[in-house]
Amino acid sequence: MEALAQAGSGHPGGSLSSADIVATLFFDVLELDANDPQWKDRDRFVLAKGHAAPILYAALASRGFFPREELSTLRKLGSRLQGHPDMLKTPGVEASTGSLGQGLSIAVGLALGARMDDAEWGVYALLGDGELQEGQVWEAAMAAAHYRLSNLVAIVDNNGLQIDGPIVEVMSPEPLADKWRAFGWSVFEVDGHDIEQLHATLVEAQKAEGPAVIIARTVKGRGVGFMEGECSWHGTAPSEDQCRLAVEELRGGLL
């Protein structure tokens, strides 16, 4: 949040809705080595909703991929922390993303590659629900089921909002679960802010035959009262005062 305020631009809403999902992945699920970001047996995480880069950077910094102080350089000229993830600049970022609809295809390619090598590592992709309006997501969904990619888990951050309004009003991708099921995926639905449930479901999803998707019901701007459920906070950074309030509230939520 502080990094976003200092950057003066960015995407707080979708970063907060993904926060618990990303935290669960990075602290309970993904096998990574911060000292060796290219460790060949690491799990691969693709942030398909690349605009949630701040939450990915926060997780990577917390896991020691780079110093936490560097978060304040977010979006600034010369920073390793680009507005959207850049795998060539940021240690721990697996794929350059930001253009919606492409991350799941990347994950499918990674999963195919892993399977060719009989590799043990898993592939995880975090998608936005507005992102599901991109036709390419469904090309990739079709391919993942066609190739029966059991080493692939997708998570949809279903916060229900996109830039121009509620997803069901802009261009409804519902019924989400039925669509994924029809495309041949195992579908799990969870409260995307319940860390225990998320963890248990991720473990379950890993065991599924073929690709699995977790539809995580979330709240955009989660944890910050004045941001929750407001699409205006999709791509607007908080002012200094708003940031102070937000951080106080988020800290309070941790007590």
Binding site: S105, I106, V108, G109, L110
Partner: peptide, 14 residues
């Protein structure tokens, strides 16, 4: 589109 990005994923896998 999926063709190109699956190729990208395979490249990421070496």
């Amino acid at each position: 589109q999926n063709l190109m990005n699956m190729a990208a994923g395979l490249a990421l896998a070496g």
